[in-house]
C-alpha cells in the first residue's frame, strides 16, 4: 500500500473533521505572516474570571501567571493560516475572557499535517491568576498540550480534546476548592498528574481511544468522587496510599487490576477506607482494554 494508505486513518479522520469544523468560513490562504500577540491584564476590579480558550492546532501551554496579573497570554501564529479571536467583558466583578485560534484554510491536507513541525504550528502560552477564582474551559483540536495548573485558583476546569498529546499537572495545591473537574479526550494520549492538588469535589473523565494516565496523588484536603468512562485503550490509575479509594468497575470486557483493594459489595475499596481522612470514590466504565492501578506513598 502507499504511505497514506498505511497511516492511521481513524486519527486522520478525526483531525480532518476537527479542522473542517474549525474553519467555518472558507478563506483562501494568504501569504504566511507570523505574529506574536501578547496580552495581560492586572487584577483591577475583577473578583472572578471565566476563561474560555479554544485552540485548533499547535502547542498549548497553560500555567500560573505572576502575582498581580489576572491573565497573561502569548500567542504565536501564522496569520495566513489561523485567526485569533479575543473578547473581554466585565460585569459585576466577573470578567469573561474568550480567546481562540481557529484555522482559515479549508483545504487542510492530511499529508501536510503530518509534515508540520512544532515551528509551523505556532503556540499559545497562557498564564492564569493565582488570586482570582477562575472557571476555565479549554477546547483543543490537534495540539501538543502541556499544563501545570498548580497554584492557579481554579473553581472549575473543563478540558476537551480530540486528537492531542496532553499532559496536565497540578504540581502545587489549588488555592481554592474546585467544584468540578471535567476531562474529555478523543483519540489522544492523555496524562494527568497530581490531581490531588486540584482539590476537586467531583471529577469526570471521558476517553474514547488511547492511553490514559490519571495520577491522583497530591495534597488531599477533602473527599471527592468521580466518573471515568473509557472506550478502548489502557487506563492507568495512580492513588496515594493515605487516602481511601473505592472503585466500582463496570464493563466485562475490560480487565481491572484489583491488587491493593478489598472486594466489597459492588466494587473494591482500600483497606484504609474507614479510617482515611480523605476518600475518593470512582465509578469506572470501560468497554475494552486494561485498567491498571498503582499505589504510591
Amino acid at each position: 500500500m502507499t504511505g497514506w494508505m498505511m497511516r492511521n486513518p481513524t486519527r486522520s479522520g478525526v483531525v480532518a473533521a476537527l479542522l473542517s469544523l474549525a474553519v467555518a468560513t472558507p478563506v483562501a490562504a494568504q501569504s504566511g505572516s507570523w505574529y506574536e500577540m501578547s496580552a495581560r491584564r492586572q487584577i483591577v476590579g475583577v473578583r472572578a474570571l471565566e476563561a474560555n480558550i479554544g485552540y485548533a492546532l499547535g502547542r498549548l501551554n497553560v500555567h500560573a501567571a505572576p502575582a498581580g496579573l489576572l491573565y497573561e497570554s502569548n500567542l504565536r501564529y501564522d496569520s495566513g493560516r489561523f485567526e485569533p479571536k479575543r473578547s473581554w467583558d466585565l460585569s459585576d466583578g466577573t470578567g469573561s475572557l474568550a480567546l481562540s485560534l481557529s484555522g482559515l484554510d479549508d483545504n487542510w491536507d492530511l499529508d501536510e499535517l503530518d509534515e508540520f513541525e512544532d515551528s509551523d504550528m505556532g503556540s499559545l502560552d497562557l498564564g492564569l491568576s493565582r488570586e482570582v477564582p477562575t472557571v476555565l474551559s479549554v477546547d483543543v483540536g490537534a495540539a501538543e498540550v502541556e499544563m501545570d495548573l498548580g497554584g492557579v485558583a481554579l473553581q472549575r476546569f473543563t478540558y476537551r480534546t480530540a486528537a492531542s498529546e496532553t499532559s496536565i499537572a497540578f504540581e502545587t495545591p489549588n488555592p481554592v476548592r474546585m467544584d468540578r473537574l471535567e476531562l474529555e479526550a478523543g483519540a489522544a494520549d492523555f496524562k494527568a498528574y497530581r490531581l490531588g492538588n486540584a482539590r476537586f469535589e467531583t471529577v469526570e473523565f471521558v476517553g474514547a481511544v488511547g492511553d490514559v494516565s490519571l495520577d491522583f496523588t497530591g495534597e488531599w484536603t477533602g473527599s471527592a468522587n468521580g466518573d471515568i468512562k473509557m472506550g478502548l485503550g489502557t487506563l492507568n490509575l495512580t492513588f496515594p496510599r493515605d487516602i481511601g479509594v473505592r472503585v466500582v468497575k463496570r464493563g466485562i470486557l475490560a480487565s481491572f487490576d484489583s491488587s491493593g483493594f478489598d472486594a466489597v459489595d459492588g466494587g473494591f475499596q482500600t483497606s484504609n477506607w474507614d479510617t482515611a481522612e480523605s476518600r475518593l470514590t470512582l465509578d469506572i466504565r470501560a468497554a475494552f482494554g486494561d485498567i491498571d492501578v498503582y499505589f504510591v506513598n
Binding site: 501569504s31 507570523w34 505574529y35 500577540m37 496580552a39 492586572q42
Partner: peptide, 15 residues
C-alpha cells in the same frame, strides 16, 4: 497600574 488590558502585537517574520 493599568486598569485595562495590555496588548502587544509584533511581527516575528519580517514580512
Amino acid at each position: 497600574t493599568v486598569m485595562g488590558e495590555i496588548l502587544a502585537l509584533s511581527n516575528i517574520a519580517g514580512v
